[in-house]
């Protein structure tokens, strides 16, 4: 099957994913061989940055989602009734 762009091919996307996961693993492994000069105690935990980055992002997405439940409105909210004019 001919694809318009090599990125349209699911096989290539799968390869990209594998590459991504390999790089993820590499950054964590590299942390093992490098002196990371931890300043705060928590920074010295193995793989701290990886776990911290992942978890805080999950929390931010969920937090945003929760706030969205309260504050989301259709994007016609201000336009509909011509309040702006």
């Amino acid at each position: 099957m001919k694809y318009e762009h090599w990125l349209d091919n699911p096989l290539n996307v799968k390869k990209l994913w594998r590459g991504f996961i390999a790089v993820l693993a590499l950054t964590v492994i590299a942390g093992f061989f490098t002196d990371l000069h931890p300043h705060f105690e928590i920074e010295g935990w193995y793989g701290f940055y990886a776990v911290y980055g992942f978890i805080t992002c999950l929390l931010m997405i969920l937090g945003a989602k929760a706030l969205g439940l309260l504050l989301k409105r259709p994007d016609t909210q201000y336009a509909e009734d011509g309040r702006d004019d």
Partner: peptide, 15 residues
């Protein structure tokens, strides 16, 4: 470089 890459790439994973 390593800590920054860990932070960013795992945030990408979360995305």
């Amino acid at each position: 470089v390593i800590t920054q890459l860990q932070l960013l790439l795992f945030s990408g994973l979360a995305f």
